[in-house]
Nucleic acid binder design. Structure first.
Lengths: 247, 247
DNA sequence: TTGGTACAGAATGTATACAGTTAGTATCTC
DNA sequence: GAGATACTAACTGTATACATTCTGTACCAA
């Protein structure tokens, strides 16, 4: 993880609570709809109720927990439609970031950074098929999307992109874990990289509409992968957070 | 306010804290950059530290407070550029809601609701100039934007729109308080209503691209009003939250 | 057997007490 | 007079105790 986004409260205990509960949720140790008891979590995480409580409130804000009217929280369950919408939302926001970057212009040094990242991804993608370095690809892909966010030049926009990315199945690297097994996915990486280049070129040429359109379309690769993965339960288990899906 | 959005914690004391602190911030009783002491707030609001603390954490998530690395919170200060971006963001999100509504279709009953709201706004706008009912306009305008959000059919999108709207200067009714005094603003209401109708028509005709484009442009009326208001400090004071602006 | 009521257990919401840290001030030294 | 150091006061982060509310179960009545 390149940076820890806007505010990931430094306070040790509360941070442990947030991370711990997130882990419990996304690893599937607690099921969607299940009620999360503060005392239970306190015991499991070895913390007192106070930081656990703070963590719960925060994760509710993040959207992975739901408030029970009578009090307490449950794990939110997502439908496949929710995930489609979350991916669409990411596309819209990244598209906006790309457009703003194009319209407002970016500094030469940042343009250079972007080209450097693209070159790195090229190295990975153009390598031999049998020695494909997936972790490296995931890393550089995340860096590209991180930079795109920054290039928007807007804290307000960056913040919202961070928020959507916190829904793990909406992020640009969500389906990478499931990809090594499937040949068709390899193709999508090549296509994805072509789109990266198009976005970068559009920003450089200050073609805002094109930058937005391509960035938006780029996110739909994820939707395509989602459809693929949803047909296979074994694959679903490899995508973080996809266990929260239940019609 | 038609509904109280996603989750406005029912818990009495915590709710008081959130509302109370928001009020203190937006009324300008605490200045941007000022540190908010928990004990001080507890005393002022007549609550214990626990709900105050919960409220602070929440308002930080909402984006009107900032976390101090060494602990505690300050009132976040916004630049004019931030507000422009927030308005742009609202336009992008409402545009997406409108597009999805058009692409996916809406029920006849909801279409009827939308038309009813438009008729109500027409009544207000087409009335005599000297007896213009601003509160009524604000109410129906808010209802239109609320419905547009719902028409997206997506909880994920609705949630994000709610978030942006919580930044008071980004909402569709942000500049209404300052409008009665300025004749030029009256014109913008007529234009705005024409855009409302265009959005509704595009949704009904399932013209997604048009719905998105018009909804996005619609938000730029707010930007126009912002430019106008920012030149006049007396007017600025009438727009909620605009006191948080400082270069 | 089914429905309702009452009671008990548990869980949340709130308050407060405690510890560690930060920031500010005053004094001392150079 | 200026800078540095030490001390004090306030504040945050955490833990725990208390009260109220909710939930689930058991028992009773129809």
């Amino acid at each position: 993880m390149a940076q820890r986004s806007v505010s990931e409260k430094a306070s040790s205990q509360t941070l442990k609570a947030v991370l711990g509960i997130r882990e419990l949720v996304f690893s599937g140790e607690v099921s969607p709809g299940e009620r999360l008891s503060e005392v239970n979590l306190s015991a499991r995480l070895g913390l007192s109720r106070t930081p656990v409580r703070a963590g719960l409130a925060r994760l509710e804000q993040e959207g992975i927990l739901e408030l029970i009217p009578s009090g307490g929280y449950t794990v939110r369950s997502f439908t496949e439609a929710d995930i489609v919408d979350a991916i669409e939302l990411r596309g819209v926001l990244e598209g906006t970031a790309a457009r703003l970057a194009a319209e407002r212009g970016i500094s030469p040094s940042r343009l250079a950074s972007m080209k450097a990242i693209l070159a790195e991804i090229d190295k990975v993608v153009s390598g031999p098929d049998d020695a494909f370095d997936f972790p490296r690809y995931a890393e550089m892909n995340a860096e590209f999307h991180d930079l795109l966010k920054v290039l928007s030049g807007s804290d307000i926009i960056s913040r919202e992109i961070d928020r959507v990315m916190r829904l793990p199945f909406a992020g640009p690297s969500a389906f990478l874990n499931a990809q090594p097994d499937i040949p068709a996915f390899r193709t999508s990486l090549v296509v994805g990289q072509a789109q990266h280049r198009a976005i970068a070129h559009a920003i450089e040429m200050r073609e805002g509409a094109r930058a937005e359109a391509v960035a938006r379309e780029h996110s739909r690769l994820a939707r395509q992968n989602l459809d693929f993965v949803m047909d296979d339960h074994k694959l679903m288990a490899q995508v973080p957070g996809l266990m929260l899906v239940s019609g």
